[in-house]
Design a protein around this nucleic acid. Structure first.
Lengths: 251, 251
DNA sequence: CGCACTTTTGAACAGAATCAAGTTTTGTGG
DNA sequence: CCACAAAACTTGATTCTGTTCAAAAGTGCG
């Protein structure tokens, strides 16, 4: 257990990205044995089909989850059945941190396409992070970044108009795809117009109209779920009034 | 350092509330020596006058802060000079957790009345929490609750209309005052209409109108900064459509 | 005591929501 | 693989909520 496993650095990197814990272990790099110990507590999770729930609001929080492949939304349900999307999550991002405080999940996490996640039992993570300062620091950073992101969303919802919100949303997606090695110019919207609207505090008709408008302006090309960004500069100009909104905005 | 300091439980409680670390140490209670070690890393901070900055966006994050007395807002500045209020903070609450991820504060923290804070050097807190699991758990809960609160604000900004937002805001304040032993029915608004509006994604005129309207309806009595809640039930009814928004909403 | 800031209130305006209809896409079962 | 039903999307017309502009009154700090 405390023996250093003799594996190459290439191996480590592979193992890390393999379990999709990029956010937890990549940034500063753990020592080989540390990485191994982290790996030991991570459970591979069965794949989820589109529409499956990863967890539900009110359920006991046992684990945090790292998205391995696929795409998720987290959303809170109103009494009347309407849903409010609180965030979208792609490969390499973590889910479930909102539930630590109360021990219960605060929202539903739903798979928007066939996905796979790694399950990280929270108690084990807490214990392990006491022994591995680097891991502890990363975990704190991840939670903090979540808070900072949320601030950005609040800014967006509190002070931007419809088309500015959508521009910020598209730029944010673009940037996150780019960070994962996908094209920043051309990608698929995994969620419906309704879900985008819910996330941005707008109605689906408004999303549809704004997308159409961007298209006639030559800023983007949309066809169904696929989006191509033609003029990122103009998108950036639309949100530039809000300095903070560009980078840490969405999720 | 590892010696158990012989102080009574009453002493401990006093010391704890004294340094205003309620959020960090009260909930489950630390052992006497643990409490003492926590106390050792906490620096008493000079009082701040109204309008003083506790920290500024972009500044290096050295410490987290616990509000001892007083009232703060945290806000992000737009390029054009407008400000967006991201939260209000009263005695016993913690500030600064948004900056851990980047090592820099993401927003300004401004005192809205003469206040006093405790400074908790973040590195020391991280180190200490490795040795005191209870402290570690509390710290994680605090960060998580901040995330959950932010989800609530997103819900509010994304799906409630003006008067619902204000109702939720008043109820949240009421509740937080009550939790600190103050009246839940009658309190002072430490912030301006403009700051309330910024926080709720509305203009100050809208806040003013809504307050006036609530008053003519007999739901509240307002005079300048002082508010008395006459019919909490109707306020609750206004926000009840959003189950989640009531409790963990603002900050 | 006066000046600056905050608040209130009114009137006109604008942006997004709502209502509605029609079209396209997607998913399912035969 | 096709047909059909359900879901998602687009677009237009209308309505309504909240913003903007404006002016006056109140409050408080120096």
């Amino acid at each position: 257990m405390s023996t250093v496993i003799p594996i190459s650095s290439h191996h480590l990197r592979a193992a890390c990205s393999d379990c999709s814990l990029q956010e937890l272990c990549l940034p500063a790099g753990l020592a080989p044995d540390e990485m191994h110990r982290l790996d030991e507590i991570v459970n591979r999770k069965r794949p989820l089909k589109r529409g499956d729930y990863l967890y539900r609001a009110g359920g006991a929080l046992q684990s945090l989850y790292a998205v391995r492949t696929g795409f998720f939304k987290s959303c809170v349900m109103h009494d009347d059945g309407r849903e409010q999307v609180a965030g979208f999550h792609m490969a390499g991002e973590m889910l479930g941190m909102d539930g630590i405080g109360s021990g219960k999940h605060m929202c539903d996490a739903v798979s928007l396409e066939d996905s796979e996640v790694c399950e990280i039992p929270f108690n084990d993570l807490e214990t392990l992070s006491r022994h591995i300062p680097t891991l502890q620091q990363h975990f704190h950073r991840i939670m903090s970044r979540e808070i900072a992101r949320d601030y950005g969303v609040m800014l967006l919802l509190g002070s931007m108009r419809a088309e500015e919100r959508l521009a910020a949303f598209l730029l944010n997606l673009s940037q996150r795809f780019a960070a994962r090695g996908y094209s920043s110019k051309s990608f698929l919207l995994r969620m419906t117009r309704n879900e985008i609207g819910s996330y941005l505090g707008l109605k689906l008709e408004t999303i549809s109209r704004a997308l159409s408008h961007f298209q006639t302006e030559g800023i983007i090309a949309v066809q169904n779920k696929s989006v191509e960004i033609l003029d990122a500069g103009r998108l950036r100009a639309m949100v530039s009034q809000c300095s903070v909104a560009t980078a840490p905005m969405a999720r």
